[in-house]
Design a protein around this nucleic acid. Structure first.
Lengths: 337, 337
DNA sequence: CTGAAAGCGCTTACAG
DNA sequence: CTGAAAGCGCTTACAG
């Protein structure tokens, strides 16, 4: 391992103190009234020696790492990958780097990831919280760490968050199908206590109710971490009992795709045999024989705003910001082919 | 910001030196022959005070951060997102954390990302290198930083890498179409000097040549960072001139999807009107009316091995390992529906 | 068995 | 205008 060049190396080469080099390289030569001659010499030496600051040392000294800890369910899931990318870019603009960890919607894994991020002294956290992690988040808050929750949140926690208006998302989706004449609309959801799912179920139930349609028997709940086989099973059982179902709303991207795999396997033509509204878009929806309708989230805005809220808190305001974004229903008609 | 508890805090509470606390908490109480009584007291105090080590301080002292710097083209691209996830998990097993950056296939951005990762003193690097970054990589090597290149590499560089046998990938894909009776097979590729693309083109050209089929006019090259409109344009122009094309091979995932969007727009039915082989899989390929054939890469293996090779180098061997993985051609037949 | 001390590379009052 | 010194939290020879 070749020796990295330090301030000391530059100082001894130029023949000045380390402090002076630090001032110059941090643009404090004005307020410190360093002589023009020294400034020039230091700059040149730093350049020639290819000096790069040691962010670790600086972090230790300053008590801040310029690091954002990001916890998502799974970075390989395009929804979270995209979010991560937006956060990366936005953080970079403010000089922050992102360290991430995937929680797999698992309480234990979430705890491990958070411990790692804390040991690495992340200055602030952007978290897609998993079920059962309320105490982990409140622990962070107790330590006065800036935290922004994304996609979901815990109503009982006084914490910044930015989420979709999930109620509206499924309310609009369901209402649209009702407007198209559907009467027996099923919702496919995850079985979880997390608020975003609860809200999506509530939106659906409300849309059905205001039209006087029963829905209690049309709610299909699937376990997190379900395999395709299990999803197939659940849908099979459900459709056997409810042969007259004429529409389906899926409450997230993975479920939507799982549903499509199922339909394909059992030769159910979507949307001809069964009206369909998915969640979050993707190539599979676009390239379907008839492009599929779905609920679209303003992901860019969600990521960008999450970073902004965090930056706000990192810069000392103690303000708690809670934002609810508006979903867009993307309606596709039969393709021209 | 609440004060974090340090070794000093524990030491003063127990009434021993900081060194002793450090020994105990790092499991060195045996070799240091710390008395059982002190061990117990320190352990308990650490527990009660919720002590978490400051990895930043440790990094500075030890000259190692237990951090892997990961550079991908774009973390929001499922191919790289998946790779990142595998690397994250594998690195975690060895106690390493991942810091990532997206280069967007851009030389400048790559340089910025690498600078950031170096300032943060990443111990080693896993890089999907962009065009024109040979000097950036060789700079890292000159500083004796462990580096593993993934997906692509630079033949002129003595550096570990793990890539697909890209030649075989398109050779097999093209040969398969030839075996099916296709004679005018086009390849859609990126215009780049990067070896993985060159190899994919070479595999295609060779497969055509051994069957005595001309191909020079059937190679379609698209710029990196192309928009869909530009892809549409290129394909339109090409197909106008070559109406008799009977098959198409796409040389990466983005191009494959771009191709499918094009086909959809112009009502070309795949694979009925035109034989098709894509790259890297994905839901869109599966859910196509007729599931589409594609070249599959062993991504898990690529990610896992990349970390293993890096760990090897981090643990002091100076060995250079270069691995070429075997692609699998996934052939799908018409669906039963 | 235990503690005092040095030092990783940096920033920043403080003194002159 | 410049330098000596302290200190961030940790690890690790060294001395006793």
């Amino acid at each position: 391992m070749e020796k990295r060049v330090s301030l000391k190396d530059i100082a001894s080469r130029v023949g000045v103190s380390v402090a002076l080099v630090s001032y110059v390289l941090n643009g404090k030569e004005k307020e410190m009234r360093v002589s023009a001659e020294v400034v020039a010499k230091v700059r040149q030496a730093a350049e020639e020696m290819n000096y790069e600051p040691n962010q670790i040392a600086r972090s230790l000294r300053m008590g801040a790492t310029k690091t954002i800890g990001l916890v998502v369910a799974d970075i390989s899931n395009p929804f979270f990958g995209h979010l991560a990318r937006i956060i990366e870019d936005e953080a970079f603009k403010s000089g922050y780097t992102v360290i991430f960890g995937s929680s797999d919607e698992d309480e234990e894994k979430s705890a491990m990831v958070l411990r790692t991020l804390q040991n690495r002294q992340a200055d602030g956290y952007i978290i897609v919280p998993s079920e059962g992690t309320t105490r982990q988040i409140s622990g962070l808050l107790r330590k006065k760490r800036p935290v922004v929750l994304v996609d979901r949140y815990f109503p009982e926690l006084n914490c910044s968050h930015i989420v979709l208006n999930n109620y509206q998302a499924t309310f609009d989706a369901t209402s649209h199908l009702i407007g198209k004449g559907c009467k027996r609309i099923a919702l496919v959801a995850y079985r979880t206590s997390l608020i975003h799912m609860k809200e999506r179920i509530r939106g659906y139930a409300e849309a059905m109710s205001v039209s006087g349609l029963p829905w209690e028997d049309l709610l299909i709940e699937v376990e997190f971490g379900h395999t395709q086989a299990e999803t197939d099973n659940a849908l099979n059982k459900f459709l056997e009992k409810n042969r007259n179902v004429d529409g389906m709303v899926f409450s997230n991207n993975g479920l939507s795709l799982g549903g499509l795999y199922y339909m394909q396997k059992y030769c159910i033509r979507v949307p001809r045999d069964l009206a369909f509204i998915g969640f979050d878009g993707g190539e599979a929806f676009d390239l379907y024989p008839t492009p599929l309708s779905y609920v679209s989230q303003p992901l860019e805005e969600m990521g960008r705003e999450a970073v902004k809220i965090l930056m706000d808190q990192l810069h000392g305001t103690n303000r708690i910001t809670q934002i609810m974004l508006t979903p867009t229903l993307i309606i596709r008609e039969a393709s021209p082919c």
